[in-house]
Write a protein that binds this DNA or RNA. Sequence first.
DNA 1: ATGGTCGTTGGACGA
Length: 258
Amino acid sequence: MFKAASWNVNSLKVRLPHLLDWLQANQPDLLGLQETKLTDENFPREEIENAGYQVIFSGQKTYNGVAILNKTTSDPTDIVTDLPGLKDPQRRVLAATYGDIRFINLYVPNGSEVGSEKYAYKLDWLEKLITYIKEQCAQHTKVIVVGDFNIAPEDRDVHDPAVWKDAVLCSRPEREAFQHLLGCGLHDSFRLFAQGDGLFSWWDYRAAGFRRNLGLRIDHILVSNALKNVCTSSIIDTEPRKLERPSDHAPVLAEFKL
DNA sequence: ATGGTCGTTGGACGA
């Protein structure tokens, strides 16, 4: 069994104990982290290596920051930290090849609110991402794209679609961009299994969002056709969200017969 | 309850 996962930890410094516990319990082979919020010199490499994981990271001060944890037998090759054609100091992308698997970890911009400068940046970023993913899917058979996409793909991924209608994370251009990603030959692994609503990966810290299940499903594991055929489960693990001082995101985890 | 909470920071800003 091969396991791929993703988790927006919202500060790796604060969440390191949760991460180490979760690694111990779940033993993913590849895990993409987002919002590490650490410069590379402050990355807790030793603690993660002591847990049995090789790690690569692309960080910055205060914001963003991504990492990939690996316990496959392969060293990462062809490491990419930027979208082609986008000059951007924000550290949101980390891709690497492990054996025959191309693993792409993303922290898609939030977009703040529809019509804002940050929203325009998000749409431009997504356009460049689609070009990159199209090219990656042409080059590799086994592709896994994980991350905090900051897009709820459909109304069933939203606790109250009327409240969120046309809002950031749910707007039509964002959802169309998500569909374009799937159009590259990818599948939303979660929807290969569960079809219901009320299943979320993020809940606002405010207003007791988690307790009331006022969430969105914005963290995803996309898989290419070759991996779709051997994917045996894809779940959202809400357990860490119940702990003291949790990330506002839950980890997502997919399993493959490989 | 016309706001609510975190994290990074050392006053706001981003989410």
